[in-house]
Simulated assay, not measured.
Amino acid sequence: MLSVIYIILNGARHTYSHTLVMNDIDKILSDNDLDNLISILEEEKQEFLYDLNLVFNNRELE
């Protein structure tokens, strides 16, 4: 969750750190089931999934 927040707040200003954090997110998601990771979220679940979707749909740096 913190990595997603970092990506959103960073706004791709730092290419190297953006790439490192995206790699971390990819590894976490490949090693774990997303439903299990977000099972503890209640009211924040939809907002987090929306943010995660934004991160993955805008992963290319210009």
Rank of each mutant, 00 (worst) to 15 (best):
residue 33 D to Q: 11
residue 10 N to W: 00
residue 25 I to C: 07
residue 57 N to D: 12
residue 52 L to T: 02
residue 48 F to T: 03
residue 6 Y to N: 04
residue 21 V to W: 00
residue 31 D to A: 04
residue 21 V to H: 00
residue 3 S to A: 15
residue 59 R to K: 15
residue 19 T to A: 11
residue 47 E to D: 05
residue 34 L to A: 10
residue 15 T to R: 11
residue 14 H to D: 11
residue 49 L to Y: 07
residue 27 K to Q: 09
residue 15 T to W: 11
residue 51 D to K: 05
residue 34 L to V: 09
residue 28 I to S: 03
residue 23 N to E: 13
residue 20 L to D: 11
residue 39 S to W: 02
residue 48 F to V: 06
residue 37 L to H: 04
residue 26 D to I: 05
residue 36 N to I: 06
residue 51 D to R: 02
residue 39 S to V: 03
residue 1 M to C: 07
residue 49 L to I: 03
residue 13 R to C: 08
residue 24 D to Y: 11
residue 44 E to G: 12
residue 16 Y to I: 06
residue 2 L to V: 05
residue 56 F to K: 12
residue 25 I to Y: 10
residue 55 V to R: 05
residue 22 M to P: 04
residue 10 N to T: 00
residue 30 S to L: 07
residue 33 D to S: 14
residue 31 D to K: 06
residue 45 K to I: 01
residue 13 R to D: 09
residue 20 L to F: 13
residue 54 L to R: 13
residue 3 S to R: 10
residue 44 E to P: 02
residue 8 I to T: 06
residue 40 I to G: 11
residue 1 M to L: 12
residue 12 A to Q: 14
residue 4 V to I: 14
residue 53 N to T: 10
residue 24 D to K: 12
residue 7 I to M: 13
residue 38 I to C: 03
residue 21 V to N: 00
residue 61 L to M: 15
residue 62 E to N: 13
residue 61 L to D: 13
residue 1 M to T: 04
residue 27 K to S: 07
residue 46 Q to L: 09
residue 46 Q to M: 04
residue 26 D to W: 08
residue 29 L to Y: 15
residue 52 L to W: 09
residue 62 E to W: 09
residue 2 L to H: 12
residue 44 E to S: 15
residue 42 E to G: 08
residue 9 L to D: 10
residue 27 K to I: 01
residue 59 R to V: 05
residue 48 F to L: 07
residue 17 S to Q: 05
residue 34 L to N: 08
residue 9 L to W: 02
residue 18 H to R: 12
residue 46 Q to I: 01
residue 23 N to R: 11
residue 59 R to C: 08
residue 6 Y to V: 01
residue 5 I to W: 06
residue 41 L to M: 14
residue 53 N to K: 14
residue 42 E to L: 08
residue 37 L to P: 02
residue 35 D to G: 08
residue 46 Q to T: 04
residue 30 S to V: 03
residue 34 L to R: 09
residue 7 I to G: 02
residue 11 G to I: 02
residue 42 E to N: 14
residue 56 F to A: 00
residue 11 G to R: 15
residue 16 Y to M: 05
residue 62 E to R: 09
residue 1 M to V: 05
residue 2 L to C: 07
residue 13 R to P: 01
residue 48 F to P: 01
residue 20 L to H: 14
residue 39 S to Q: 10
residue 49 L to V: 03
residue 57 N to P: 03
residue 53 N to W: 10
residue 34 L to P: 04
residue 16 Y to R: 09
